[in-house]
C-alpha cells in the first residue's frame, strides 16, 4: 500500500510554473521535510496536497486514493491536517473553541441537536463533553492550560503557533502537514517545538510532512529530506546526503558555494 505519494505534480499560474513535475513518496511514521529557498514552491505544494489549489497535472495518492479534485474538507476527513505559515486561527474564538474545530469532523451534532442542547445530558451536551475531554488532553500535551479561555487573536505569536498545531492534532490526522512550524520563534520555543514534533511522531504515530527554513532543526528531526528549487526537485535523501548534495549547496549558497 502506498501511504502517501506525489506523482508528477505540476501547478501553473498562467505562465509561471510554481511546481514542475515533482514526485516523492512519504513512508508511514516518518518525518519528511521539504526545503528550498523562498519561492521554491513549497507552500504551493502543500496547497495542492490539501486541495486549496487543483493541480494542473499529476496525482497525490494517500492510502491508495487519489486526492486530486477533492475539496479541502473532504481531504481533511480522510485524515490530513495542516498548519499555516501565516497563522490562520479563528481570532475571535478562545483556545478551547479553536481546538474544538479540530474535532469538527468527528462530531455529529446538527442544527436540531445543537439548538436543543438542554444541558449536559442532551445529545449535543454529551458529545460536547466527550470531545472537550479530548481537547483537554491536547491542551495538556502542548501546555496551553493558562490560555484556555483567552481569545486567540491577542495571544503571543509562539502560542498561536502552538494552538494551530493543537487544532491540527485534534483532527487526529494520519498525515500532518506543518508549514514552517518554527518560523519567528526564539531558540527556546524552537526546542519545545522540536520536542513536540518528536512526541507526535513517536507517541501518536502521526506521519509528518514539514516545511522549514531552520536547517539545524530540519537536520535534527527529519528522517528524509526533499530539496526543491524553482518548483523542481533538486535532491532527495537522508539529511546527510542532502546536506552534501552539490545542487542544494548551489541553490542556497550560489554558484561557487563550497564548504
Amino acid at each position: 500500500m502506498t501511504f502517501f505519494a506525489v506523482n508528477g505534480l505540476s501547478m501553473r499560474f498562467g505562465g509561471l510554473k510554481a511546481i514542475d513535475d515533482v514526485s516523492f513518496e512519504v513512508r508511514e511514521g516518518e518525518v519528511y521535510a521539504l526545503i528550498g529557498p523562498n519561492g521554491a514552491g513549497k507552500t504551493t505544494l502543500f496547497n495542492c496536497i490539501n486541495g486549496i489549489y487543483p493541480p494542473t497535472r499529476g496525482t497525490v495518492i494517500f492510502k491508495d486514493k487519489n486526492l486530486c479534485g477533492k475539496k479541502p474538507d473532504r481531504i481533511a476527513k480522510i485524515g490530513i491536517a495542516r498548519t499555516f505559515q501565516n497563522i490562520e486561527l479563528f481570532a475571535h474564538m478562545n483556545t478551547m473553541e479553536n481546538i474544538m474545530l479540530g474535532r469538527h469532523r468527528f462530531m455529529k451534532t446538527g442544527v436540531f441537536h445543537g439548538g436543543l442542547m438542554w444541558g449536559r445530558r442532551s445529545f449535543a451536551g454529551k458529545e460536547e463533553i466527550r470531545h472537550r475531554r479530548k481537547v483537554e488532553e491536547i491542551i495538556d500535551l502542548l501546555e496551553l492550560q493558562s490560555v484556555r479561555k483567552n481569545m486567540v487573536g491577542g495571544l503571543p505569536y509562539g502560542i498561536q503557533k502552538k494552538i494551530e498545531l493543537g487544532r491540527a492534532l485534534a483532527a487526529e490526522p494520519s498525515l500532518l502537514l506543518l508549514d514552517e512550524p518554527c518560523a519567528g520563534m526564539n531558540t527556546e520555543e524552537k526546542q519545545d517545538m522540536i520536542f513536540w514534533i518528536r512526541d507526535i511522531q513517536d507517541e501518536l504515530g502521526i506521519t509528518i510532512l514539514l516545511i522549514e527554513h531552520d536547517m539545524n532543526m530540519v537536520m535534527d528531526i527529519s528522517d528524509r529530506i526533499l530539496a526543491i528549487n524553482f518548483g523542481q526537485v533538486i535532491a532527495e535523501g537522508t539529511p546527510d546526503e542532502v546536506q552534501r548534495h552539490p545542487e542544494v549547496l548551489k541553490a542556497y549558497l550560489g554558484e561557487d558555494g563550497t564548504t
Binding site: N50, G51, I52, K71, P72, D73, I75, A76, K77, A81, R82, F84, E88, L89, F90, A91, H92, M93, E97, L101, G102, H104, R105, R167, A168, A171
Partner: peptide
C-alpha cells in the same frame, strides 16, 4: 464563526 474568521483554515479542518 470559523468560516467568518478564517475561511481557508475552516475548510482544511473539515468544515
Amino acid at each position: 464563526v470559523a468560516i467568518r474568521d478564517a475561511e481557508i483554515a475552516a475548510e482544511t479542518i473539515g468544515v
